[in-house]
């Protein structure tokens, strides 16, 4: 029996003026997986999420979420969806608990049902001692955890997370990651967008890299690294690193890219490159395995996107 996807989008498109922001994307999420949607700024991630939630109608293509056609039955689909938006939009006039109660009412829950559910959400978010705090008194990490708890008020099957850890310190990020793991273990399906490749590599079962509204790669993080990039990376940095690159790295590495004072050399074997550095004492180096960030930069380029 073929499993029905939790979310299925076929050839969706969206045009603003003469720019096609989403140019024919396909997407399919399996139950219980964490799916990453990656791309540089302006790649079409936010527009894609808005279309999947039914907040923007696609110009073409078909979307089904949790069995409902979107945007036609987006309201029905959203009953079983939780959303963690990029920007915190907690109610500043309310306490932690009031934020959860008010949000739960939007789903049609009665107050006594919400009062019964909120303690477990506060525990999940490690905010039990903050139940009656005002939002202004919370740290960035606490606010993020509260937004996550708020997204769980309806015990959703599918959770959208739009850059959930942007702006958080490393400790706070790890707490969020650990909570997301827990949700995946409970069988929830997650759709995640992020700028942090370590986050995507750590959490996602599968991911899709998009640019200019099109898919440029898709697969499990490890498979993407294996198929798109050489296994070893040597980062070499110091003044006039270009001279070394021209003379030594180009013949020895399969690819070498220079950004500022750093050269990224990709190769199956980096030992010859390391040996070649012996006559360049002012250069430092770091040897590491290739990661998702290398794939991302190879596929989307190193130039800045604004």
């Amino acid at each position: 029996m073929r499993e029905v996807p939790v979310l299925d989008a076929a050839n969706i498109r969206k045009r603003y003026g003469d720019r096609e922001v989403v140019a024919g994307l396909d997407m399919s999420l399996r139950r219980g997986e964490c799916f990453g949607l990656l791309g540089p700024n302006g790649a079409g991630k936010t527009t894609t999420l808005r279309m999947l939630l039914g907040l923007t109608a696609p110009d073409a293509g078909a979307i089904r979420v949790l069995g409902h056609p979107v945007p036609q039955a987006a309201r029905e689909a959203r009953i079983r969806i939780g959303v963690v938006p990029q920007m915190d939009n907690l109610d500043p006039d309310f306490t932690v608990t009031e934020n959860l109660v008010v949000y739960g009412r939007y789903f049609g829950f009665k107050d006594d049902a919400l009062q019964a559910r909120i303690p477990s959400l506060l525990q999940f978010a490690a905010l039990e001692s903050r139940a009656n705090s005002r939002i202004q008194e919370l740290s960035g990490g606490m606010k993020r955890r509260l937004v996550l708890a708020r997204a769980l008020i309806n015990d959703p099957d599918l959770i959208f997370l739009d850059e959930p850890t942007t702006g958080l310190d490393p400790q706070a990020r790890h707490v969020i990651w650990e909570r997301l793991r827990k949700l995946l273990n409970q069988g929830k399906t997650i759709l995640l967008t992020t700028h942090f490749m370590d986050e995507a590599e750590r959490l996602c079962d599968r991911l899709k890299i998009i640019d200019e509204g099109k898919t440029i790669a898709e697969g499990a993080p490890r498979d993407l690294i294996r198929t798109h990039i050489e296994p070893e990376v040597l980062e070499v940095y110091g003044e006039q690193v270009e001279q070394w690159v021209e003379k030594m790295a180009k013949p020895l590495a399969s690819r070498a890219e220079v950004t500022g004072e750093t050269a990224f050399c990709y190769a199956a074997q980096v030992q010859p490159l390391i040996d070649s550095l012996q006559n360049y004492a002012h250069l430092s180096f770091m040897h590491r395995p290739a990661n998702l960030e290398d794939v991302f930069l190879k596929l989307t380029g190193r130039e800045m996107r604004d």
Binding site: L53, L55, R75, I79, N89, D91, F107
Partner: peptide, 14 residues
């Protein structure tokens, strides 16, 4: 300013 509506529109409210 507060983006309250954005939050509401993510719930099953149009």
């Amino acid at each position: 300013v507060q983006r309250t509506w954005d939050g509401i529109l993510n719930a099953p409210i149009v």
